[in-house]
Amino acid sequence: MSGLLQQLFNGLVSGSFYALLALGLSVIFGMLGVVNFAHGAFYMLGAFGAFVLLDSAGLNWWLALLVVPILLGVIGMVLERAFVHRLMHLFPLYNFLLTFGIALILQDLIRLKYGVTSQPYPRPTILDGMVDLGVFTYPKYQVFVLVLSIVLSVLVWLVLTRTRVGMIVRASTERAELTQSLGIDVRRWVTPVFGFGIALAGLAGVLAAPMRAVNSEMGADLIIVIFAVVVIGGLGSVVGSVAAGYIVGMLTEFGNFYIPALSQILVFVLMALVLLLRPAGLFGREEGSPA
């Protein structure tokens, strides 16, 4: 029994990364209608940001956790103003290609500077060791990652549902033109939302640095799964993408446990099933159905 619980917990932890990344991707898609292919690259930049700050400035992980997402968020906003914005009125494929290109450029720049092997990153000392969770003990660091990701997801959900800003964002996600015609300036929220999504990816990257291999390709493998997560949760649905993140995390973990050879395709099997039975995603709403 405790074994099963432990696998469940493993799944939640790996789901934390999926959830944070899918959340950012989802918010960006909802607000801009842009599928951000560069999301994985910003996750990678987050991890590298932490590495560079530690390596060159001696800045510790806790500061990196604060500084790197903000920095990447600003870079994201600049990118949005400079490029993404200009292509938004065109066919979505243009922005898809743009962000894909940005991802390749970022990956190659990092590879040029740091090569192909991973960079070492130590765990913060306070989070070293294990914590007793009653049923089993678990690495402190991973528990911290899980808690932080849940707290962040809840915060984002509260902001979106309980504040005026959130209502505007949600309204423009659902019916941009209608919101516009009610006298709300939708456009001024586009850039910050894009930056926020990127910042979340960067944050996930900083969280990954001490436990995953830090190299230029780390985001490229992940992004495919994240797309599947977002589709399963329902494109543009915040709750959906977070929930799907944890579901996929647990699914992969159970797969690893019982049928390792299959574990990596399980997520795509689930995606296919969802598309077949609920094309709008588990939490998505069919176009035109009542709110």
């Binding site: 074994g3 432990q6 696998q7 493993n10 932890v13 790996s14 089993f136 991973q142 995953r212 291999a213 780390m218 493998d221 992940l222 992969t252 973990e253 690893n256 446990f257 390792p260 050879a261 574990s263 990596q264």
Partner: peptide, 17 residues
């Protein structure tokens, strides 16, 4: 002896097992 997926970045299953 367990075969693990390749490539893979999460080995928690095997560490807890």
């Amino acid at each position: 002896a367990d075969a693990t997926p390749f490539p893979n970045d999460n080995f928690a299953t095997f560490m807890t097992k």
